[in-house]
Design a protein around this nucleic acid. Structure first.
Lengths: 225, 225
DNA sequence: CGGCGGCGTTAGAAGGCCGTTAAGAATGTC
DNA sequence: GACATTCTTAACGGCCTTCTAACGCCGCCG
């Protein structure tokens, strides 16, 4: 575990606490030393404070994500939603706002390690001739001559992702609408009808007789492997 | 799961979202009703907003901890560390500061349930050749060549679910009508006759001689495993 | 033996949900 | 600023679900 923070007191408090919980802890106080330490020690988790002296924490995230997918928990004094989204979009796994309790941080550490120990099953799904790779964010069809790719729009992809992550399970309309469009769209079931139709048209061999993207009348939809 | 909050909008939003994720949700708006509901329903998780109208949330925590160690997730608008420590020391399991995202809350719910080793109940039941999986919302029949599925309509499924969740127990007609159609339908026993007939036709090996979906003349119906 | 009430079954009508299409609004791109 | 892509919104036909009302059947009881 690597802790990156420029405040000596906080760094010291964190490392003492976490060593007391039997984690193996390395520390760094700048972005450059953090990247070097991460490359050398191959940590299983990085706790990263934004607002480092040499360069911003987002650069550290990008520098790490260039070659590893180690879980990153970001600490920050900023509560703004934009900061959260920015860090998370660049590849952070979690975001903790100061002030925080050690219990809270510890719970998040456990959650991050747990997630990383239980990798998502393959994250590859098949629909007709198409292979959907959630981690690579691609939809490909291996052919005799060449493998061609399908293009999904942002909304199409979000919707498909929710269905695939619940493979085999029924996902009801309200949950789909909430996860794709956000709360407040729970009445707009026509969105679902529209985009499911488009997904079927792009992915299903026979769009009028779907074999994988199924409708559950009265409830919602389901992806069947 | 019991949600305690005095803000109607938040309470409503939370319960809709969590019901959509297939949690069984009860609600309360005051501390006293919360304690009563917890004693009656024996929830597997309590989400508690501090700052209730009748008495403080900490009293609710103490009242619960007197006889149960159900996980408690505290919601609060206060960011002060003293409030967090106070709630956690009195026995709360987690502390979420407003505003929070649904995704964050949901992750914490999962973590709390996981910590408490309350895995989702198997939720699988057998009727003749059919296997009913309540969590995946599927009805499948494993066959030699391939497993085929049965399609249940919304009302059929709701009715079956009530019977299965009370496996082995007698469920009287009024309770079935109330849980499936809502209050005000307690005279419409013909609905029950109609839909039980359809369920038997779809699931029982010999619909005219039911082996699992039994009639208790004069009282109601029963699912026998 | 005949009436009665509860239960199972069938058939038909009404309504709701779903898939599809089309067009306007919003957003991004050159 | 023009164009293309994507998103939103509305409308419509068709199918499925639900509701409703019958009709037989059976056991119970007078």
């Amino acid at each position: 575990m690597l802790i990156v923070d420029d405040e000596p007191q906080l760094l010291r408090a964190l490392s003492i606490d976490l060593r007391g919980r039997h984690y193996e802890v390395d520390t760094a106080t700048t972005g450059s030393t953090a990247l070097a330490a991460a490359a050398r020690k191959q940590p299983d988790l990085v706790i990263l404070d934004l607002g480092l002296p040499d360069f911003g924490g987002t650069e550290v995230i990008c520098g790490l994500r260039g070659w590893t997918n180690v879980p990153i928990i970001v600490l920050s004094g900023r509560t703004g939603s934009a900061d959260k989204i920015g860090a998370l979009d660049r590849g952070a796994d979690d975001y903790v706002t100061k002030p925080f309790s050690m219990e809270e941080l510890h719970a998040r550490i456990r959650a991050a390690l747990r997630r990383h120990d239980n990798p998502e099953p393959a994250a590859k799904y098949q629909i007709g001739d198409w292979m959907v790779d959630l981690s690579a964010h691609t939809v490909t069809r291996p052919g005799a001559t060449r493998t061609d790719t399908a293009h999904l729009t942002r909304t199409e992809w979000n919707l498909l992702e929710v269905l695939l992550r619940n493979a085999g399970k029924l996902v009801d309309s309200q949950q789909l609408l909430t996860q794709v469009w956000g709360p407040g769209y729970q009445r707009e079931t026509n969105y679902l009808r529209f985009y499911l139709s488009r997904l079927r048209g792009k992915l299903e061999p026979e769009p009028s007789h779907p074999r994988h993207l199924l409708t559950e009348p009265g409830y919602g939809y389901r992806y069947r492997p």
